[in-house]
Each structure stands twice: as C-alpha cells, then as structure tokens.
C-alpha cells in the first residue's frame, strides 16, 4: 500500500504530465485535470488497484471507473500510464494526429483502461448505473466509481440517473461530484446555480458525503467511509470540493483555465511549482 507521501509524489508528477501534455498539444483542459489529480491517483493506487495488464472492457472481477466529464482526459491518461496501462511516453501524443489519447476519452483507438467514450456531458452516471447493475447480475462484488463535474450537473440526464440509482437500490456505486464551483462561462453559481446540492441529492435518496479532494489524507478517509456505506440499499455520492488549477498558483480557482492550455512561458512557470518526482515522460 503506497504511503500518503508516495501518493503526493505521484500527484505532483501527474500534474507535471497535465501541464506538459496540454502545452505540447496546445489544447486541452488543464484546470479541472489539475484539481482532480489527487483524487484520481488515490482512487487508482490506493483503492481500485486494477490489473493493468489483464485489462478487459467487461472488467468482471475488478472495480471500474468512469469519467463522465471527459474533458479531464489529461489527468486520467496520466494516471493510467503511471499505473501501467500503457507506456508513459505515449502521453506525448495527447490530442495529436493518430493518437490513442484522443481529446476526450474514446475506446475507438483501443486505449487500455477506458471502457466507453465520454466528453459530451451528462452521460457517465447513466453508464455507471448500467455497469453497476451488470455487476449485480454477475454476482460480482466489485465497485463502480464515476466522476462528474459540478457544472456538468446542468445536463438533465444526470438527474434522470440520480433518480434512477436510488430507485433501483444501486448500492455498489460511488459517484463523485468534482465540486470546484467553476465552469466554462464562470462560477457555477452565476452560470446556473446548483442551489443546495446536498439537500437535492439527499432528497433523491443518495447517501451524501463530503470530502476535500486536494488532501490525500481526507480522500483516503472519506473513500473508506464511502465504501463502508455501500451494500446498504443506497448509492453513495461524494461532494468533493477541489480547486480548479490546484498546484499552479496562477491557475488556482480561475475558470479561465477550464479549457485553455498553458503556453511555453506559462508551462515553464507552472512546472517550476510542481516537483518532478518519479520522472517526466
């Protein structure tokens, strides 16, 4: 089991990957990717621990992760590569012609670790519900995780899924809302206010937890609690507070870094704030 400091080192490296990938592609979405690096590293290395070499789309006998807000692809690709799904040098092909690392996650090009395309928002939670139901039918006790953005909750399909999962007692599912309060056009509050999200989720029948997604110790603690709350007849959802652009001071909490890559100068400045810990790709 990796120590917290080992996970922190990995997160720093993943953040470097995100900066270097988006800079090299001159496109991509660094803000949310940086904000969720700690969570995704912890989820894969501390909790899911899948077998990267025995990857199958069906994923029977292992935990599954779905990224509904597919524009965070850079962080997912980095974590998958660092976990051993494919060679880290492939990260350099991100968003470039003939790459398996498409702008948004896809299975079309056969990248291991990914089971469905995402990016057109609002679809992942439904998919995760289906995958969780398949696990139930298969008597497979492994879990399904799904990350959705808070801005993404504008999409109505989420609310269909949010109604469906408790009704079906899908209690092998942990949904995580990246609660960073930012979306493309500005703060979520100004674009389309989510109101009292916790009350809404609870009234829909979810077990709602809160955690701070830029503190690995808190992530470990709360994911353990989340897992202990499963198999009790309710799906679990975690409102995960994060900071967009976490780790790079000039990107922090700034919605303008949602979908803008750093230029060479900005990348240099960002990398100076993110220690290279286990080696750049």
């Amino acid at each position: 089991m990796p120590s917290v400091s080992a996970l922190q080192k990995l997160s720093s490296q993943v953040r470097r990957d995100i900066i270097r990938m988006t800079n090299s592609a001159a496109s991509g979405h660094p803000g949310g990717a940086l904000g969720t690096a700690d969570f995704l590293v912890t989820l894969y290395f501390e909790f899911m621990k899948p077998d990267p070499k025995g990857f199958t789309t069906d994923g029977i006998g292992e935990d599954l992760f779905f990224l509904s807000n597919g524009h965070l692809s850079a962080v997912w690709y980095s974590v998958l590569a660092r976990y051993g799904y494919f060679e880290i040098k492939e990260l350099g092909t991100f968003r470039k012609l003939s790459s398996r690392l498409q702008g948004h996650p896809s299975i079309h090009e056969g990248l291991p670790g990914i089971r469905i395309a995402s990016g057109s928002l609002g679809q992942g939670l439904s998919v995760a519900c289906g995958a969780a139901l398949a696990k139930r039918l298969n008597k497979d006790n492994h879990l399904v995780y799904c990350l959705v953005g808070d801005g993404e909750l504008d999409e109505g399909q989420n609310w269909e899924a949010l109604m469906f999962a408790p009704d079906r007692k899908i209690d092998n599912l942990v949904a995580i809302v990246d609660y960073n309060g930012q979306q493309i056009d500005g703060p979520v509050k100004n674009v389309l206010d989510l109101g009292n999200l916790k009350a809404k989720l609870e009234s829909f029948g979810w077990r709602v937890l809160e955690m701070y997604g830029n503190d690995i110790q808190d992530i470990i603690k709360m994911l353990r609690i989340a897992i202990s709350e499963l198999h009790k007849g309710k799906p679990v959802i975690i409102m995960m507070t994060t900071h967009m652009g976490f780790g790079v001071d000039f990107m922090l909490d700034n919605h303008e870094w949602h979908g803008v890559p750093p230029n060479d100068e900005q990348a240099k400045q960002a990398l100076s704030q993110l220690p290279e810990t286990i080696g750049d790709y």
Partner: peptide, 24 residues
C-alpha cells in the same frame, strides 16, 4: 433482468451502454 427506467430515455440509453460492460 428487466429495467423500468421511467420516461427517461437518455438515462435508458446510458444504462444500456453500461450494462454491456459486464457482458450483458
């Protein structure tokens, strides 16, 4: 093996896609 989704076709398509992950 039957899932009533209510009048929520978007969710139904997503749940169906998810069910294939697991061999259904």
């Amino acid at each position: 093996r039957f899932f009533q989704t209510g009048i929520a076709e978007a969710n139904m398509m997503g749940v169906a896609a998810g069910l294939t992950i697991g061999g259904k």
